[in-house]
Write a protein that binds this DNA or RNA. Structure first.
Lengths: 366, 366
DNA sequence: TTGAAAGCGCTAACAG
DNA sequence: CTGTTAGCGCTTTCAA
């Protein structure tokens, strides 16, 4: 509650109409179509409403009748905290919220705990459509969303046949980054990536595991990296890839540690997110490895903190991504072909990447 | 849309029941009370549902019937972007989202643009209660919320008679900070504060303006500062207070510039938020003023970045604040007295505060 | 301008 | 375990 005792919803539109001796239509019009009745009558209706403590038409009943909930649902998988701690996710959320605000509709965050397979929350959400942000291919909540007879837009992943999608061209984006490293001369690289499946594996990821990853984005980026490096003769099976279930700077650091401990010869650490890369930078610092002189580190996303740290990365317009998803959903006219919006990305070469130290330099110094 | 042509909601619970030759109750039970019918029958119901493309009970209709929307509304005033860019606000949002997730209810962000007085969105939101986060005393959206017959919890501000509230003890918290500065010997201080009213004033704020501020938090903090400094003989009317409408690091910097240009003798800059303080720090750096040797700067909130910059500040548990608000709202049993949860705060003395330089030091160096 | 009729789709007693 | 009965509170043709 919050305020003094409030008797349970006393007045309804009907009781108000009765009190006034007019029809329900008239009262309804007083609220929804002011031009449909005399100002004088309207004033009387509203005043009586105030006197009776009638709070105006019940939003749920109205929604049932109009078949419009006035809200869009947002499905974020995994612990909500990650969404609120990753600047890239916050950017998407902000963009989406902005689009909703422009349209005057609410944004309903669906409670989707990872553990509790609480698909019911999806069924219970009174919304006109869903935006699904970056979930695994086999997410049960996503399945539940797709069952609902409302429009859906997926951001980033997964790719579902026939469903609208907004996201970057991951393969192209990371290929550009890989080419940058190839041109610099890196051949001994290592990769730090985010979770590849719903089951935890804080360890090296085998090639089959990479190929079968349940997260489209990671799968695509790894595949593109493999292709780019194999094109210059690198045997991808020999490239160490370390996976982390949680997406934090600390996990990035521990992943870098695990990788560098086992493969000290690596000259470049490619991270599939800036958060992980920031951790890698911290770990390099901890072991006294100079970046980029002794180790190149790259990220992905282009968050503000990456810029402050001079991280070479791929920037993607997260705010626009969220906004585009919202607009797409809200513009959902009946349409045939699913729509796909591919956002531009930009390679940001900064001070964390440089040519690898040659063996000679290793011995005689730079 | 998103997927191939989908005929408009064909099946309903009733049509399914008819098709199966059972009553609506039975179908409803198949979804909501599995233990109320034979597994065999339930299986048949669910299978037929799938065959007919029945997506399960309509959430809005269910809400109307059960009188439970399964969501709580969140009213954030002002441009949404500020909420998503202030770490303190994000923390509150995260805590609230967590509480909602625990309870399995959705979190509905109400679109409340500052300009467009779109109070309708508040009326349209199908929610079981509202959390209002930090809005001005005279916010029309808040008024609309209080009109709705659902529980409400206010976070931080304003204080409304009879409404549940969660927040820190601002006066006590900032008094602790003021005493710290007083003990260090500061008497010539300046203040950087956030907006004091809904109309913009990016300039010095007169004492009357401070006293009549429409934002309870700012008003309280300024009053407490005044009291603490007047207690040691400082004439508050002579203390410069610069106000900024927007809450960004850049605005903090420009405010600091404006203040220091006019009052170069100031030895300490008290900022009512870490964001503003971070800007002040940047400005001090820009003009070559060493902190804390030549200028003391303090903040409020205790965000992570403040810690990285060694900012002396008052820390408040923002995540707990959001979570507490959610729990309070969701626990809303009928109750008499409004509840108030006061969160603990902690003065964090770090490296941005030190005794003021004496005149002697000014001439002869430290 | 105003009113009467007809549900939107579902759940909750309660009785069988 | 299943069905019958009654609305939840509102909007919306269509007439008057």
């Amino acid at each position: 509650m919050g305020r003094p005792i409030r008797t349970r919803r006393q007045a309804t539109l009907a009781s108000l109409a009765a009190e006034l001796g007019v029809s329900r239509t008239t009262v309804s019009n007083a609220y929804n179509r002011p031009d449909q009745l005399s100002p004088e009558l309207r004033r009387r209706v509203l005043e009586t409403a105030r006197r009776l403590g009638y709070p105006g038409p019940d939003p749920v009943a109205r929604s049932l009748r109009t078949r419009k909930a006035g809200a869009v649902g947002l499905l974020l998988t995994e612990n909500l905290s990650y969404a609120f701690r990753d600047p890239a996710a916050i950017g998407v959320l902000e963009g989406l919220a902005l689009a909703c605000e422009d349209a005057g509709v609410g944004l309903h965050l669906v409670p989707a705990s990872p553990g509790r397979e609480d698909v019911a929350a999806v069924h219970r959400a009174g919304v006109d459509g869903f935006v699904v942000y970056s979930v695994p291919d086999d997410d049960p909540h996503l399945a539940a969303v797709l069952q609902r007879p409302v429009p859906t837009v997926i951001v980033d992943q997964p790719r579902v046949e026939g469903v609208d999608r907004v996201g970057p061209d991951d393969a192209a984006a990371i290929t550009g980054l890989a080419n940058h490293l190839v041109e610099l001369g890196h051949r001994q690289v290592g990769v730090l990536c985010m979770r590849l499946a719903r089951e935890r594996n804080d360890d090296f990821a085998s090639v089959p595991r990479q190929r079968e990853a349940h997260f489209h984005v990671q799968r695509t980026r790894l595949a593109a990296l493999a292709k780019a490096f194999e094109a210059v003769g690198v045997d991808w099976a020999s490239v160490p890839v370390v996976e982390r279930f949680e997406h934090t700077v600390d996990d990035g650091a521990s992943a870098a540690r695990q990788l560098l401990d086992a493969y000290p010869q690596v000259t470049a650490l490619i991270c599939t997110s800036d958060i992980l890369a920031l951790g890698a930078l911290a770990e390099a610092d901890r072991r006294g490895l100079r970046v980029p002189a002794e180790l190149t580190v790259t990220g992905f996303d282009g968050i503000a903190e990456a810029e402050r740290h001079g991280l070479t990365t791929v920037h993607q317009p997260v705010l626009d991504k969220g906004r585009a998803a919202g607009k797409l959903l809200l513009a959902s006219a009946e349409h045939g072909a699913p729509r796909v919006i591919t956002l531009p990305t930009e390679l940001k070469v900064r001070s964390s990447s440089a040519p690898p130290r040659t063996a000679e330099q290793m011995w005689f110094g730079p």
